[in-house]
């Protein structure tokens, strides 16, 4: 016991707050990486998370390819499976943010976030670590979907560089939606509420979009929404990248939407994190 006494206070290396921007930045990166590792470790432990990340997207691909696909007319090279893949990647990326919101709400409820906030951790690390682990998770989802897509007849038709850009855009869409969900989780702070109504907005955004059907088949009043909402816009851009088609219009609209959402929701999330 006395040896322990003698060491008291020497456990934490920094005496007083860190000085210097470089030092702070280094600690911030370290904390972010620790948090990322932590989130991935948790993710590996929960079968439900793995299901949502891998199995569910595969089921969606098969469902739309073989069950609904025959009834959905599209005019793109390669037929419905070509039309579907960018859409399903966008939809799955957006839905992956369920995990973000629920995990954060859960950690607040459990007091885990309070513990972090009482520790000398970079204030941003919980969020940046979360988003970094989310983007790794999303990358896996996208790769799995593409693998299954290739098995059921999908082919990129526009070369490899646009193909890679399409994947990156899909992941970016997912991360951006995760930012919204992170805010929802931090603001609602209750796992059940988040799960039951906190994320309902995801359904119209993903299904009232060009992800699975051409928008011109919808009633006129719906078309206005479906055409101009961000997920449709990003998915249209992904489709042009994958299959060839006009890039410019949807490209800048996508960037504006994605950056715009980040600009609004990152500060909101940070504020909610500080306040919890």
């Amino acid at each position: 016991m006395s040896a322990v006494t003698a060491m008291r206070g020497t456990g934490a290396p920094a005496q007083g707050p860190p000085t210097g921007l470089g030092h702070r930045l280094r600690l911030g990166v370290m904390d972010t990486l620790t948090m990322t590792r932590r989130e991935l470790l948790i993710w590996f432990r929960v079968p439900a998370y793995i299901f949502f990340t891998i199995i569910q997207p595969i089921m969606f691909v098969l469902l739309f390819r073989y069950v609904f696909g025959g009834a959905i007319p599209v005019k793109v090279p390669g037929g419905y499976v070509s039309y579907l893949m960018p859409g399903i990647i966008g939809q799955s990326a957006a839905f992956a943010s369920f995990g973000t919101a629920i995990a954060l709400a859960r950690q607040i409820q459990k007091g885990v976030i309070d513990r972090f906030r009482s520790m000398p951790i970079a204030r941003s690390a919980v969020l940046t670590g979360r988003l970094l682990s989310d983007s790794l998770r999303l990358t896996l989802t996208v790769l799995v979907i593409l693998g299954v897509g290739y098995a059921v007849g999908f082919r990129f038709q526009n070369g490899w560089v646009p193909a890679i850009l399409m994947m990156l855009l899909g992941i970016a869409l997912g991360v951006v939606v995760c930012c919204i969900s992170a805010y929802v989780g931090l603001a609602i702070r209750d796992e059940e509420s988040v799960g039951s109504f906190g994320l309902v907005w995801l359904f119209p955004l993903t299904f009232v979009s060009s992800a699975f059907v051409t928008i011109s088949t919808m009633p006129g009043w719906l078309q206005a929404f479906a055409k101009n909402q961000p997920i449709s816009i990003v998915i249209e851009e992904m489709r042009s990248l994958a299959l060839g088609g006009p890039l410019a219009l949807h490209a800048w609209q996508s960037v504006v939407w994605l950056v715009g959402i980040l600009v609004v929701f990152i500060p909101l999330s940070v504020r909610a994190y500080r306040r919890v």
Partner: peptide, 18 residues
């Protein structure tokens, strides 16, 4: 302050999956 305190809150702040 955060450098020198420890907190065990009213509910156990443990990540139960780990």
């Amino acid at each position: 302050v955060r450098e020198i305190i420890g907190l065990a809150g009213q509910s156990a702040a443990i990540q139960e999956e780990l």
